[in-house]
Amino acid sequence: MSEPQDPRGPADRGPVDLHLADLDPDDPAYTYTADKPPLPETPEQLRARIPGWGVDLDPADRPSFPRERFDPGLNGAHWRFPERQVQHHPRERSIEHAFVTPVFGTSTPPSGLSGAVRRHAYRYSEGRNAHWLLLVAADRVGALEAALASFASRHPDDPVSETGVLSEPGHHPLRSRRGRSDVRHQVLDPVLVAAPWVAGGVLGYRVVRSAVRGVARSRAR
């Protein structure tokens, strides 16, 4: 009498019916058949070893299944459209929005040269690289403006302590980095941090020097 046929195809049988012991582990040919490769452990073994194994097997138990589930009462909002937040400053917005959203962040409104660059960037849609590249440029200009402004305040920028690099001695700087692939490019970090300061210093020195020479020349005449 023949064995009863499994109505499922071999690919659907899953890991329970296949065992590594039945196969030559050095022969990968089994993965070139219709079978699913065998697993090292059965579900029973996994359930015994892993806390909670399989408790979310049923997709219905997974909070984000299905991805979209219409439920207007889901979040407890007691408005259809939120009341509008008051704008204390003209608020930049993406031109892909119809209007400034009813609620928005109020951190660091645009100002100075960086602010002008940012406002210009918002003339371009998010689909244009000009939008993002201008914003990155504004970020760099803004960092320079902030540093210059800080020197006129009670809390001037300290490019050493603000990098946190002073924490290195107490936190195993060599042992922590041994064998890591990122060490090759971590040496670029000090260059990236210091370069704007060095360039700014050189530029400032040249400006001051040319001014001094100009004054000296005008006096000599």
Partner: peptide, 21 residues
Amino acid sequence: CGSCFYCARGLQSNCHNVNAN
């Protein structure tokens, strides 16, 4: 916001009413 097209479908991370930028 809890009330926009996305929030009503469980996609609160894509809310349409909170990011003007």
